[in-house]
Design a protein around this nucleic acid. Structure first.
Length: 533
RNA sequence: UGCGCCGUGGAGCAGCGGCUAGCUCGCCAGGCUCAUAACCUGGAGGUCGUAGGUUCGAUUCCUACCGGCGCAACCA
């Protein structure tokens, strides 16, 4: 692997249907992805982070008609809303692809033609329950749910329709897929998802219909203009059309294959079976990893019941509600610290507030407050007056280098909750304990220089904490870093985990944070537990 | 039904073969006063779902069962 290759990092998230607004579960995925790319950037990688919306579904023209809009106008409007939410959560995506864009259409046509030319597409007959109300086929499951009728149109009888479609020869890739899983242990992460996919591929891997007839909205099949590409086949292709496949081959070659597709556990099979088979057929390299994250469930505060987020249960929580009540930082912290990214997690307003108060207000925020206040009160913000002190004193008794090493490993492998837990226990808590043990507020009465030494150590502590939380809480981290004049040594933008290991530059060390009457304003004002909502 | 995950003090989690089973929140008692009534110390509280098995030894491995949950080809 060349140096240039190890340094570029291409990550994608699942593209979302635009017919409903993003909820906390959708946001969970994007934040987890964002933490990873922020971390990779800190590690020196040149990152490309792709997100987008999945717009070529039958529901789009339906919904657009209801709103009296052109489909394209509708999806553009929705994409704007999605991006607003992602920006509010500080999701640092590089590009946002909409599958209604021409660049996507062009890439899709090229790709399906390549698969066709490879002989993996054949004409067949698709049959199923068709609903005239939805203008779509219903799955057996949907029919069962509706008691033999369409769940959305119970008065419209379902009809059995047979239609000529094109099929992708997925079954032909069974052995090559299994071989790939075996030779690339990391292809499907976390481990628990592997078995599921492997047993699925071993047992049943049927060819799939990849086109539908008679839809105006969607991508026309190049070898048969009466047919449009079925949503799944087209959706997966965003990962390559978003980086220039079919429109900018040079760029595509630079970025592909993806380092990781971050997706929800429900769609692992598409990404681990269908997608690699499609790529094999088209002669393209496979992504290095598919990470299937867990889901966020809603805990009902009164009954204690844990439920899936769903519109019908009315328990959907919109990210903006929490961002407005607390902050994007609080939002990011809750989900990254409380929900293991590879597994499932729970959300309740009560718990959100409890975690916010305990970890952000009382620990992190308060550490910041008390440190800066003492610097201002005892030294008027200047810590550089005395003789040079040992600023690494605080690291004694702490296995510091191994800690940084394991944090890098944990963050790099998406184990965010464990990483945050260690940062809090071993860095933030330790700092509060250090203050209690050294008692600078007492010491200042007898030994000013010793007090200065303690505060210099705390300043370094703040600096290191800033670096460690940078991928998770970018704003808070920056505030921490700008509390002192650390930027004179290393600019904030270029600070990485390695800088936590370099010693503090005490030259001219002083407080740069804005203070009002010698105090910073609270970063995380405490909230009344149980009050919100 | 198939496949998968989970069941550890009041709540949320960690431990995944062997020191007195850890951590956070909550609770109780002290301490401190720099700080967002924050912080620090100590304490109470667990037969690690049940029944077997493997082993010198199991919360940790195996089997069965009970209970909860997820996925199963367009609801993150």
């Amino acid at each position: 692997m060349s140096d240039a290759e190890t340094k570029r990092y291409y990550l994608t998230t699942a593209i979302d249907y635009p017919n409903s607004r993003p909820h906390i579960g959708t946001a969970f995925e994007k934040i987890g992805a964002d933490v990873q790319v922020r971390f990779r950037r800190m590690e020196g990688a040149s990152v490309f982070f792709l997100m987008g919306n999945d717009e070529n579904t039958i529901k789009v023209p339906q919904r657009a008609r209801e709103l009296n809009l052109e489909p394209k106008a509708y999806v553009d409007q929705m994409a704007g809303q999605f991006k607003d939410v992602w920006h509010a959560l500080d999701i640092s995506f590089s590009d946002f692809i909409q599958t209604s864009e021409e660049r996507h259409h062009a890439g899709c046509r090229k790709f399906i033609q390549a698969v066709y030319d490879a002989g993996d597409i054949y004409k067949g007959t698709y049959s199923g329950h068709y609903c005239n109300g939805c203008e779509a086929f219903k799955t057996e499951k949907e029919v069962a749910e509706g008691g033999g009728k369409c769940p959305n149109h119970p008065n419209t009888p379902l009809i059995w329709v047979e239609e000529d479609n094109y099929y992708f020869r997925l079954s032909a890739y069974r052995d090559r897929l299994l071989e790939h899983y075996l030779s690339h242990r990391d292809f499907i992460q976390p481990e628990s998802r592997r078995n599921e996919v492997m047993s699925l591929v071993e047992s049943e891997l049927k060819d799939v219909a990849i086109t539908r007839k008679g839809f105006a909205w969607g991508i026309k099949t190049p070898f048969d203009p009466d047919q449009t590409i079925y949503v799944w086949f087209d959706a997966l292709l965003n990962y390559i059309t978003g980086i220039g496949y079919g429109t900018d081959e040079e760029r595509f070659r630079q970025l592909w294959p993806a380092d990781v597709h971050v997706i929800g556990k429900d769609i692992t099979r598409f990404h681990c079976a269908l997608w690699p088979a499609m790529l094999m057929s088209a002669g393209l390299p496979l992504p290095r990893m598919v990470f299937g994250h867990g889901f966020v469930y809603r805990k009902n505060e009164e009954t204690g019941e844990v439920q899936k987020l769903s519109k019908s249960l009315g328990n959907v929580v919109e990210p903006m509600d929490l961002v407005q009540q607390f902050s994007s930082e609080a939002f990011r912290y809750y989900f990254m610290s409380q929900c293991p990214f590879g597994g499932d997690g729970e959300f309740s307003f009560e718990r959100f507030a409890a975690v916010y108060n305990a970890d952000l207000a009382n620990n992190l925020g308060n550490l910041y407050s008390r440190t800066l206040t003492m610097c201002a009160k005892y030294f008027e913000g200047r810590l550089d007056g005395g003789s040079t002190v040992d600023a690494t004193q605080w690291r004694k008794g702490l296995e510091f280098e191994p800690l940084i090493g394991s944090l890098r490993e944990l963050v790099g492998s998406f184990e965010y909750n464990l990483a945050l837990q260690r940062i809090w226990r071993e860095v933030v808590d330790a700092a509060n304990r250090y203050i209690q043990e050294t008692q600078p507020f007492k010491l200042v009465k007898t030994d000013v220089e010793a007090t200065r030494a303690v505060l210099v150590n705390l300043a370094d502590w703040i600096r290191v904490a800033a670096i460690l939380i940078k991928p998770f809480l970018p704003r808070t981290a920056e505030t921490f870093y700008r509390a002192f004049n650390f930027e004179e040594t290393t600019p904030w933008e270029s600070v990485g985990y390695v800088d936590a290991l370099t010693p503090l530059n005490q030259q001219g060390l002083h407080v740069t944070a804005p203070l009002t009457e010698g105090k910073p304003s609270p970063l995380f004002p405490k909230v009344e537990v149980g009050a919100p909502r």
